[in-house]
Design a protein around this nucleic acid. Sequence first.
DNA 1: CACCCCCCCTTGATCGATCCAACTGCGTGA
DNA 2: TCACGCAGTTGGATCGATCAAGGGGGGGTG
Lengths: 347, 347
Amino acid sequence: MVRSDHRPGSQLPVTPTTLADVAERAGVSRQTVSNAVNNPDLLRPDTLERVRQTIAELGYSPNRAARNLRTRTSSLIGLRFTPAQEGTANAMMDRFVHSLVEASDEAGYHVLLFPADDEDPIGGYDNLLRSTAVDAFVVTDTYLGNPQAAWLSQQRAPFVAFGRPWDDDVARHVWVDVDGAAGTRLATQHLIDRGHTRIAWIGWRKDSPIGEDRRAGWVSTMHANGLPTTGMASRVEDVVHSGAEAAAVLLDESEPTAFVCASDTLAMGVLHTLWIRQLAPGRDIAVVGFDDSQVAQVFPVGLTSVRQPLEDVAVEIVRTLSALLSHQPVETRGVLLAPTLAIRGSS
Amino acid sequence: MVRSDHRPGSQLPVTPTTLADVAERAGVSRQTVSNAVNNPDLLRPDTLERVRQTIAELGYSPNRAARNLRTRTSSLIGLRFTPAQEGTANAMMDRFVHSLVEASDEAGYHVLLFPADDEDPIGGYDNLLRSTAVDAFVVTDTYLGNPQAAWLSQQRAPFVAFGRPWDDDVARHVWVDVDGAAGTRLATQHLIDRGHTRIAWIGWRKDSPIGEDRRAGWVSTMHANGLPTTGMASRVEDVVHSGAEAAAVLLDESEPTAFVCASDTLAMGVLHTLWIRQLAPGRDIAVVGFDDSQVAQVFPVGLTSVRQPLEDVAVEIVRTLSALLSHQPVETRGVLLAPTLAIRGSS
DNA sequence: CACCCCCCCTTGATCGATCCAACTGCGTGA
DNA sequence: TCACGCAGTTGGATCGATCAAGGGGGGGTG
């Protein structure tokens, strides 16, 4: 990134400097200035130096609109911003957006946010696409039956999805995702290593493929270690009190010594039940959550949680987008990244 | 907002439709189509209808770059995105950004994110401004000594700050802020109403004007009710364990029955100490936090917390920005909004 | 010496919208 | 009858960059 100098005394001219201004001042043509900016190799070193000096003197920066018009690009990446639901612990968007902004910046892109309209999930995409306001999209909500990915594919709009195309085997778009099953495998194995044998699962309803994926990690690790899973699992809504209820039932019926949860929200429910029953998390009963939310981080003893590598996801997404936009062949259709486990007091 | 139809069968043409295409098809001139979009009043009703129909048929949407170039605007609002710090509960950015995106959309703007570079706090602003990539900025981090507001003012760049210009009495820029003192007044009065008389304060270090503002609300309410404040206050770093330590000291030395905290992070520290001492929050000791973070919402018994009206802040900011950008006189230089109290189990 | 080529740079056209000034047809009043 | 105003429409110029093609000078080659 070029770091412009901004002396306290300098002030932006009323009419910004244009390429023509620079050209005249430097005694060269417009095209030469353009080349100095975009294709420095084409200039003789001394000319390049002279033009660059003039650019610095005048504080010139190419007009985005003009460049966009001519090149038919915008250097913008569209992201439909969906906020964290109130009353849940699920706030990974914040971290992800930050990473995406950073990664995009390094690749020369900016991130454009647009609102989610539940009644018209495609509307925002359609408008931006038609008006050529963005070069590409990052699609984050690839839940089952979401029409966005299919629609964008059909429009031949460049985009990368954060999330696998669960419902559609023939989906031809590019995606980056986190291996949820690997995360719960880490969590379950961690508990087994600590000596637990009766490890319960509290996850989401069966219609959530993400939830089923995470559940699969628990199941496979339990079985691989010859441990029982029957009667040890519960599928509920992703809200705190559902997690609390599920924990209460499981504690009564199956006497688990540890819980693996599909989310930090559910884990907080478990902790609530433990609190009511005067059971100490970490000492009496171990709990592991998913997402490494701020909740997990500041909870008194700390909640052990599976942490998604959102920084890596963002970097991978931007890398893929850059390739797509420069019409390079994209080698792989999907990338699956491994999460880590943030171990804290609750286990 | 215009809702475009996007039938599943339709596909974006390789070369997007232009105004000229619409004009030809509708049998009118380009200017007439432009007027149909921007100044419908100038057209005869039947002509307008015909043009609109053609626009719909062709799925035309004005090219953003061309419009931006000609009108010297971008309909973009720049926001420097700073993520929540790890290990704290302070995640209001998420809610604020969402509100800002919604409010901006309704006013015809989009939000452009750019990364924070700590070494060069103005770099991002400077680049976007020079290249006329955004129309205005929303500045969020108006902490003491932050040069951004002053610099932007000096560049005559339109912007609205979320946060008062604490350090600079002569600052002439427009701002919107939340009345932190009013928030802690609400919190303190709430505790007094519940019968508490020994109410402690845990806040930030003295060099934070925001922290001092919040503290003032506690002080004034205590005094107004003839309650003591000496020896009941502590100023620490905004991290969990500092809050925990401060709570321990205060409990030992001053025997408070309630705590008001400058942040949910500190409140979590208090809750940690209560947990260690086997004291039940809400029953034995009351705790109130600040920010109504997700942490406050999902904590087992729930943490009572001051909630900033971020939706209103966003609306007010966008309203002010729109006025600034249309060169209307801005009536007030600053707007102060009142927070509310989200009451939960901890009090 | 003529020729070609390559390097470096310049010139005119273009992207697609809006701004500007002028032009048309129609009705009105002198 | 004709000037005039008004509403609706028109073609041309413009925003500021990049694309495509063209030109001049120096060096190498036949």
